[in-house]
Computed example of a mutant assay.
Amino acid sequence: MAAKKILMLTGEFSEEYEIFVFEQAMQAVGHTVHVVCPDKKAGEVIKTSLHDFEGHQTYTEKPGHDHFASKTFSEVRPEDYDAVYCAGGRGPEYIRIDKRVQAIVRHFHETGKPIFTICHGVQILIAVDGVVRGREVAALQYCEPEVTLAGGIYVDVPPTGAHVDGNLVSAKGWPGLAAFMRECLKVLGTEIRHGELQMTGKAQAA
């Protein structure tokens, strides 16, 4: 399997887990992930947030760790990437109205390349006509009306689950990252094989 290039769309105060965990897991298996944010240059700070579920009527939001853009947004060429990933959190709410972000998503939709979305990331897809129409998609439950109004079919997966509809992989939020990334890897054609642990030296003697 050839390594893939994934473009991650974020905005300030996107969910930190959905940035950091996805990026590092994909890098661990050899894929390249470029984290971009509108009008940010490579190396500039992207502020993130941490959303948690603490027994209130809705989630809480706290400051997350700073991330750094790994590529200058104005230099992004979507045709250079094999997949696009829309991280969730608060970022999607405002970057979805950016015409440049919409054009990037439209490229992946029209070319049939993999599209990954988690939590509020679906708001970015909804902003581009036709992307979710007729498609099954998971997202945080508060996005269900938007998905339905855009012609999509909202799928209420468990918090730790994920859903696949062709080239579209989606999940409810960061508790589902393990299942979500597993399905993303399948869509990318990534195969992970587990072999016997090879022990040497003192470990063998023990």
Rank of each mutant, 00 (worst) to 15 (best):
K186T: 09
P175I: 08
K62V: 09
G195Q: 06
V187I: 06
H56P: 00
L177A: 08
E16C: 13
H31W: 05
S14Y: 02
D156F: 07
G121N: 15
Y85F: 13
I6S: 00
T117D: 10
V122W: 09
L188W: 07
S49Q: 13
G130K: 10
L50K: 05
T10I: 04
V164I: 14
I104G: 11
Q141A: 12
D66S: 10
F116D: 14
A103H: 01
P159Q: 03
T48H: 07
L140Q: 15
L197N: 04
E144P: 11
V122Y: 03
A42N: 10
G55I: 11
L50C: 00
S49D: 14
I118E: 06
A83G: 12
K40V: 07
L125G: 00
S70V: 11
M181N: 08
G121H: 05
K71Y: 13
L185W: 03
T48F: 07
D80V: 11
E18I: 10
E44P: 12
G91C: 11
V147C: 11
A178F: 06
K186H: 07
C37M: 11
Y154I: 14
R135L: 03
T190G: 07
I115F: 04
A150H: 04
F116T: 13
E191C: 02
I6Q: 00
A179T: 00
A3V: 03
Y142K: 11
V147N: 05
V33G: 08
P158A: 15
H109F: 15
P38K: 13
G161N: 07
E12Q: 02
V132P: 08
H107Q: 07
K172M: 06
R193D: 05
A162G: 10
I124D: 12
Q141T: 12
A139P: 03
K41F: 10
A2R: 00
G151D: 05
H56Y: 06
V36K: 11
H56A: 12
L50S: 06
T72F: 05
L168D: 08
A103V: 13
V131L: 10
I115S: 02
G152W: 01
I115R: 15
A139N: 12
D52Q: 12
E144V: 08
V84D: 00
V21L: 04
L168G: 01
T60Y: 03
K47L: 15
T10L: 03
I95L: 10
E16I: 10
P114K: 01
K62Y: 06
T60Q: 11
G130A: 13
K5R: 08
K62S: 10
F53I: 07
Q123N: 05
E93M: 15
H65T: 10
K99W: 04
A28R: 11
T200M: 05
